[in-house]
Design a protein around this nucleic acid. Structure first.
Length: 595
RNA sequence: CGGGGCGUGGCGCAGUUUGGUAGCGCGGGUGCUUUGGGAGCACUAGGUCGCAGGUUCGAAUCCUGUCGCCCCGACCA
């Protein structure tokens, strides 16, 4: 390809609406153009990158026996209703774009394809003899993100590889899950990016176990916790750790203490001289269930600990055996609107009576009571007395009739001890999630009636796994991980071109002829080569080549007369002046070696 | 949706406080000079100042409404 024909428009100034390096560089290099919020056009250079990534994914998945398909993007609402996701995905803050067709039928633009694929599986798979099956597609997905940002990192239209596997039993699912884990490691390694795989929450998709693949970068939206020995790594949403020991509080008869206006742990400690770990913080939450009911939840956690909302949602959902759409921490305004005014916020204890809910409007009349282990383990503690301006000191759990369910709902933090080895202190990093693998189990197959007949002739629901890679996000994450002040440094395997031949001065016939010859030879040797044949000053061509991140340059310049050219590596900046033949041989060797 | 900020030639910005009919840098075009790290000089094209109302003799500037974009939080590949 010739740069003069490449439709290449690079920007010298940093675009005002791009915040992070990768987003700025992709725009400055002319890789992407924003069409509207969260929606981008992939320009020719970008498409080449995406195709290279896609190709690697296809090779690795095909090697594992996966089958490529292409599923529709418009989905009928019925199948989403059958899995109970239509409401959650379209109503309120739902992320599914949806529309009504001319017959008045409701359709959604696919944000993910569990429903469609499971329906297909239901119609196609009859016997255990057809299993296992692993089908994937590489396809544009649509999600009406609450807040699109950072270019391709969180866009509303993006390219994703999604795979779905079907099995006759859980053991077989786990086997494929491990194979996919393996395939993912290979894919990311071949793409030339460094990833960490972490324990993850499975979120709205549901299911048992899941792992995320993270590109570590400052701009990452997730916080991950890692043990220095690398044996433990988890998304903070899911992470567990050993909380530090609480400060000792002697066991004594319980006393009521006046604590006027001391509503926060901070104030209470300041005025009464307690340590936060001696106090039980009681948090009141309203959970919106998928059946649109509001469930009040009373949570006890040690005062020095932070609540992990993802864990809370999962526990409530387990307790009620249904999905939770959202959580709301109760504030003053909510007390009014739900007629909960009598609850002494700031002074509530784990034993807050259900009678406070009697007059409440539109919410269930009984608390779910949870206590985090950190709170449950305290033998003597401080907590609210359920009366304004009063706390109990030297309280203990035997005082309360209503016993909470003991669960893990605290947020693990960096600096805490890992549970697998208490000598390992967790460290934190930020990560960009580019892949996620899930063991879904039978959730979707059950609701869509996707069954098969087992070897005993009995009909059973299919076991399912699902496996995603954000292809367009991966491309940008690669840039976030690999760039410098001059621009992008593409890993060779996914670079739009492997090398650019730069003719320093196009008006110099010798240089021009030499450059063209080199270009021809590279192309004939199967190298993805670009030739910069523009009538520009050499400096402009160097800057552009650096900006768009081509891994290698061959420069036909002032030494062309002596049949010498420069070979330069983008990443290291290493430069060698070589005979033309030598330069071509060297770079072909280097490129083939890294492939 | 809540909080913050911004819309002025293709891009980056000034001008708005104090109303007087639009300017700078980059980019584009032409010519001459230059030619190894985003060249110099000269000429040149390009803007209903997001949009719609209003106030005024007069609005980029003041008022009202509206649309769009970005950042922080909930969402996630």
């Amino acid at each position: 390809m010739r740069v003069s024909r490449l439709m290449l428009v690079t920007l010298r100034d940093t675009p005002a609406d791009a915040e992070i390096a990768s987003h700025q560089l992709l725009i400055r290099g002319g890789f992407i153009k924003r069409v509207t919020s969260g929606i981008y056009a992939y320009m020719p250079l970008m498409l080449r990158v995406l195709k290279k990534i896609t190709c690697i994914i296809q090779e690795e998945l095909n090697a594992k026996g996966c089958l490529e398909t292409l599923l529709p993007q418009l989905h009928p609402s019925e199948i989403w209703q059958q899995t109970g996701r239509w409401n959650g995905y379209t109503a309120g803050e739902g992320i599914m774009f949806h529309l009504t067709d001319r017959q008045g039928k409701e359709l959604g633009l696919g944000p993910t394809h569990e429903e469609v694929i499971t329906k297909l599986a239901a119609e196609t798979i009859r016997s255990y003899k057809q299993l296992p099956i692993n089908i994937y597609q590489i396809q544009t997905k649509f999600r009406d993100e609450i807040r699109p940002r950072f270019g391709l990192m969180r866009s509303r239209e993006f390219i994703m590889k999604d795979a779905y596997s079907f099995h006759s039993n859980e053991k077989d699912l786990k086997k494929t899950y491990l194979e996919m884990n393996d395939a993912y490691q290979n894919i990311f390694k071949r793409c030339g990016i460094e990833t960490v795989s972490v324990d993850a929450d499975s979120g709205a998709i549901g299911g048992a176990e899941s792992r995320e693949f993270m590109v570590t970068a400052e701009a990452g939206e997730d916080l991950i916790l890692i043990s220095p020995d690398k044996k433990y790594a988890a998304n903070q949403e899911k992470a567990v750790s050993k909380a530090r020991e609480a400060s000792f509080l002697p066991k004594k008869p319980v006393e009521i203490r006046e604590t006027i206006d001391q509503k926060s742990i901070e104030l209470l400690c300041e005025k009464q001289g307690f340590d936060p770990s001696q106090i039980i913080k009681v948090i009141l939450i309203l959970a919106m269930t998928e059946s649109n009911e509001l469930q009040p939840v009373l949570i006890s956690i040690r005062g020095d600990q932070e609540l992990n909302e993802v864990k809370v949602i999962n526990e409530i959902s387990k307790h009620l055996k249904q999905s939770i759409l959202s959580l709301k921490l109760i504030d003053k305004g909510d007390l009014e609107s739900y007629s909960l005014n009598e609850i002494p916020i700031g002074f509530i204890g784990p034993d807050l009576s259900n009678s406070f809910l009697v007059k409440a409007k539109n919410i269930r009349k009984k608390f779910i009571r949870f206590a985090d282990h950190t709170a449950a383990n305290l033998e003597s503690f401080v907590c609210g007395a359920n009366k304004l301006n009063q706390h109990k000191v030297f309280a203990n759990w035997s005082l309360f009739d209503e016993k909470p369910e003991v669960v893990d709902i605290r947020t693990a933090q960096a600096g805490e001890r890992s549970t697998h080895d208490i000598n390992q202190m967790l460290i934190e990093k930020r990560g960009i999630e580019i892949g996620h693998i899930f063991q879904l189990g039978c959730k979707y197959s059950k609701s869509l009636g996707a069954t098969f007949t087992n070897d005993l002739g009995i009909e059973e629901p299919l076991w399912m796994g699902c496996y995603g890679i954000g292809v367009s996000r991966l491309a940008q994450a690669a840039v976030e991980q690999s760039h410098d002040n001059s621009g992008i440094i593409w890993p060779l395997a996914i670079a739009p071109f492997e090398i650019v031949v730069i003719i320093a001065n196009i008006k110099d016939e010798i240089q021009k002829k030499l450059g063209e010859t080199i270009y021809q030879e590279l192309v004939e040797s199967g190298i993805d080569a670009l030739i910069d044949d523009r009538d520009e000053r050499a400096g402009v061509k160097f800057k552009d080549a650096d900006l768009i991140g081509i891994p290698w340059k061959i420069i036909a310049g002032r030494d062309s007369k002596a049949n010498k050219v420069e070979l330069r590596e983008r990443g290291s900046g290493n430069t060698k002046l070589l005979d033309t033949k030598q330069a071509i041989d060297d770079v072909i060797t280097e490129i083939s070696r890294s492939k």
